[in-house]
Design a protein around this nucleic acid. Structure first.
Lengths: 232, 232
DNA sequence: AAAATAGTGTCTATTAGACAATATGTC
DNA sequence: GACATATTGTCTAATAGACACTATTTT
């Protein structure tokens, strides 16, 4: 084979909603090897003919399974960043994925932890390589799609309330969302078999009990609404 | 540098509206080298440390400029396909872009031509590597975005009529579009400075003359409507 | 009973889309 | 004037969003 080759990797921006604060968190992993050994970075794997993956998507799943031992509710490729400067070893590519996790996932291992998204976006915490940029792009994709799809529901607990759904949408969009609109969207999805009413209730500290719903995706691709939230 | 490397390229799915039939066409280029020498394929370039590009986006622009000598109205990365089988030389990656061209572009050179999109999508004409798949994905992206953005206007002549816009939308979406909706969208964009009324008219063979508009994008990113066409 | 929270019903604004009415050209 | 085509205006349907009202629980 010729020398016309480059270093390629797959990196994962895996998000979950923090169970208590209901804010977004990014799954990071402490690097074992150089470059940037010891630093917290996106979990990822190298791809090439000597690694066991048949495709990029398979490599993305392997990265999550091996490094993080989690299975995502949703996984989609966001894009590829490639240039001469992002890795000190030379011209390199990273194809990066957005993964949405159950808020109840547990991460085992010292070298794996969730980190608050906002502190990454504000650059108060810096990631090695251009991982900060990759996080930003993945979150932009999530926000853009959350306006007209059910993507936020992939972040909600298995049985969830209207308020859980509202909190997820607000976290994805980074702004307040109208409660009535959330209810209507859930109602609409229920009619199409994408959400079911479990019949169970959850009793908050005070007040009327909350209905518990379950998200039951019917296809790999997200549910698409034909209007945008935030139209104002 | 280690051997952990892979063959990477950037390929372009460049589309234009055929001036007479107003159907979509894909820009293809006849390969000079093996593999698949002599066959018509997507224009593309290899990327690595020895090629002159500082980034993937720069490589995409170079691919269009060098191979096709055209400048696109719109250029966006769609995704990256990577696996062990797509290229006989081994594990390889292609990051592919969607480019939208002026219908009046001229392609110079024998090894460059536009080819009807439908015959590629129907697989009556086959492309080497997985270029058929890349075309399909790029067109899917175009259709998905055409529902709620102004992307079709990047395919329309410099001065265009309502019918031109309608034809572009229909070509992008692959289905009929309501004329009133097109007018209203143009009116809306005019209000936001994305479309201007040239004041000029175009006289069809018979009947009342048509207003000529001009598309004047205000940003790199597309104009986003907050409702979908085809909501029915 | 009072307070708190959840859920329902009603009304408005916006825009896609259907279609009738009108304007402006050619033959 | 007859006809073809473009443009405008009117009406309907669907849904986001605001908000008042009702329901169900705890204290």
């Amino acid at each position: 084979m010729s020398t016309a080759e480059v270093l390629a990797s797959v990196d994962i921006v895996a998000l979950r909603l923090s169970p208590h604060s209901q804010r977004l968190e990014v799954l990071l992993h402490q690097r074992e090897r150089e470059p940037h050994a010891g630093q917290w970075a996106l979990p990822g794997v190298i791809v090439n003919g000597r690694t066991p993956d048949n495709s990029l998507d398979a490599a993305a799943e392997r990265a999550l399974a091996e490094k993080a031992r989690v299975q995502p509710r949703h996984l989609e490729q966001v894009g590829t960043e490639g240039n001469a400067f992002r890795d000190p070893r030379g011209w390199s590519l990273s194809t990066y994925y957005l993964a949405l996790l159950d808020p109840d996932v547990d991460v085992e291992g010292e070298h794996l932890a969730f980190h608050d998204l906002d502190s990454l976006l504000s650059r108060r915490v810096l990631l090695p390589f251009d991982h900060g940029l990759l996080v930003e792009r993945a979150v932009e994709r999530l926000a853009a799609k959350s306006v007209y799809t059910n993507l936020p529901l992939y972040l909600v607990p298995e049985r969830f309330t209207v308020l859980d759904a509202l909190a997820a949408m607000q976290a994805c969009l980074g702004q307040a969302v109208n409660g009535t609109s959330v209810r209507k969207r859930l109602e609409r999805m229920k009619g199409e078999g994408w959400v079911e009413d479990t019949g169970e209730k959850h009793q908050p500290r005070l007040g009327r009990p909350q209905q518990l719903y379950r998200h039951t995706p019917r296809e790999a691709r997200a549910f698409v609404f034909d209007r945008s939230l935030l139209a104002g």
